[in-house]
Simulated scan of single mutants.
Amino acid sequence: MDLHGLLDSITLENIMEIFNKYKAMGPVLAIGLPMLESFLPLLPLVLFIVANVNSFGLFLGFILSWIGACAGSILVFLIVRKFGQKRVFNFLRKYKSIQKMLSWFEHRGFGPIFLLLCFPFTPSAAVNVVAGLSKISIVNFVLAVLMGKLVMIFIVSYTGQDLQSLVTKPEKLIIALAVLAVMWIVGKIVEKRMHPKKPHPADEK
């Protein structure tokens, strides 16, 4: 089976069938699949979250998805941070777009990573890699991942596969925005208490 065929076979029905077949391993799979997506970004994270919610209920499915997605992102970040100077990653620094993101992450810290990870279709693998190459502190990155993934997974868990309901049903959009705002405020408060914000060169002019 080629890659395209493999991806086509990953449907909500097939994932639910795997959960039913291996009930004893349910929580391990529920955490493992979102974690695996951090390393293989072509995998459908949204489907994994919806399958977890359908299998374990809204609260537990949300928690298991959040643990897996956060653990995967943090592992990717730590691997890139450790081996970021090696040739396999070093060529990325040559691209201007990567250089801009590196500068943005390093000087803005929590904010941009949090916002990028709040949205379901952001290429979070790219965010994890660039953050690992940057000089952002591990604590700031972990905080942004925990908060950003919480918002994103809550939105997907709350709406299911029907993300369009955020547009068609204003009450869902209001709740999603409220969660985003609360997590943003909490994250910024924690960040300020841990690390005073470094001025960006552009701000000093």
Rank of each mutant, 00 (worst) to 15 (best):
V139A: 15
D8Q: 08
L58G: 02
L12K: 14
H4V: 07
S73K: 01
S165I: 15
M25T: 07
P34D: 09
L180I: 04
F62A: 00
V167W: 11
F141I: 13
S9A: 14
L42K: 04
K172V: 01
Q85V: 15
A125T: 15
L33Y: 08
S165Q: 11
P112V: 01
N52E: 08
V130W: 02
G5I: 09
L7A: 03
L6R: 12
K172F: 03
N140E: 15
D162I: 12
K172S: 09
L116S: 07
I31T: 06
M35S: 02
L133A: 02
P41D: 02
L143S: 07
R193S: 13
L3N: 02
V179H: 04
S55N: 07
L133T: 08
D203C: 01
I185R: 05
V167F: 15
S124T: 14
T11N: 09
R193P: 10
A144D: 11
V151S: 02
Y95M: 11
V76L: 06
I153V: 10
S38K: 01
A51I: 07
L7H: 11
S73Q: 03
R87T: 14
I79T: 03
L33H: 00
W66P: 03
N90A: 14
I113F: 08
P201F: 09
R81S: 00
M35C: 07
R93L: 15
F62I: 00
V179I: 13
N54C: 03
G5A: 04
W184D: 06
S165K: 04
M25A: 15
T168R: 13
L36A: 00
E37W: 00
F121T: 15
L173C: 10
K198M: 08
A202N: 00
R93K: 13
L166Q: 05
I138Y: 14
F59P: 02
P120W: 14
Q99W: 04
L45V: 13
L64W: 12
I185Y: 15
H4I: 08
N14G: 09
N20C: 04
A181G: 12
K192I: 07
L33S: 00
F105K: 00
S9P: 05
V46M: 15
S165M: 13
L146Q: 10
V80C: 07
K82W: 12
P196I: 01
K86V: 07
L45R: 05
Y158M: 01
F105S: 04
F19D: 05
V167R: 12
L45I: 10
E13V: 08
A176G: 03
D2F: 00
L117W: 09
P196S: 06
P27V: 14
N90L: 11
S165T: 12
V182E: 11
P41W: 05
G109W: 06
I113K: 06
K188L: 13
I10D: 10
F59D: 09
K96T: 13
P41Q: 01
R193G: 14
E171P: 05
V46K: 05
K82Q: 05
G68K: 06
I175T: 10
I79G: 07
P27Q: 11
V142G: 12
V80F: 07
I67Q: 06
L166D: 08
G187T: 05
